[in-house]
Design a binder for these strands. Structure first.
Lengths: 104, 104
DNA sequence: TTATATATATCGGATGTCCAACATATTGTA
DNA sequence: TACAATATGTTGGACATCCGATATATATAA
């Protein structure tokens, strides 16, 4: 099988960027897991599996970047914490500097 | 050791994005490996090791996305091929749609 | 010539990322 | 109650990404 060393430029996959994207999306609006997965699907064309999205959310929560609140029994709404906002600010700065010029 | 499932949002690391970034940088200017590594270092703050940059270049060359030309014995200048330009166009579109709103 | 610096290259392996599969709980419907 | 649909959650493992170590070749300097 072909190995795409350095990342497959065709796919432009999320490796390493999922946490960042989640923080960014939650900064615009608090959401529950499925909402988040759907929003990501809309953007990148592929819906992350439960085994992808929930461990990511768990990590971000354990790192203190997001908080969770149960809503109406079934869904759990995630929100950015102050620490999360700070982390996002830093990550955003790096992201913008790294990919400067890619956006029109 | 802590596992950052979903990608460490603090680092905003390159996992999966290096090939994309290389294509983008070469689309602005043909460069040799070290030039490329220095440009990446300037952007993301960390210079990729030889074990990172050269295998990535080799992959991109094998995929027909870049061509290489020896210059003055020592350096090898890499340029985007037509296929590479196409790949970049597609990847850029995905990238922009995925991270829409992150750039100011 | 010897030594140093620079550029390229390969390989092994540590580690992270992500999915498939499975499991649980709640809600709504028949 | 039984059944389906939806949301959340866990685990194992395949695979990719990337670095450290190492090697080679060339150019330059002493």
């Amino acid at each position: 099988m072909r190995r795409f060393v350095g990342g497959n430029p065709y796919c432009c996959d999320m490796r390493g960027m999922l946490g960042f994207l989640i923080l960014f999306l939650l900064s615009k609006k608090s959401m529950h897991g499925q909402e988040l997965a759907d929003e990501i699907a809309k953007r990148k064309g592929e819906k992350p599996s439960p085994g992808t999205i929930y461990p990511a959310l768990k990590s971000l929560r354990e790192m203190g970047f997001i908080s969770s609140e149960e809503k109406e029994g079934k869904t759990i709404v995630y929100s950015l914490t102050e620490r999360g906002k700070n982390a996002l600010r830093i990550a955003k700065r790096r992201f913008i500097r790294t990919f400067l010029g890619v956006f029109p």
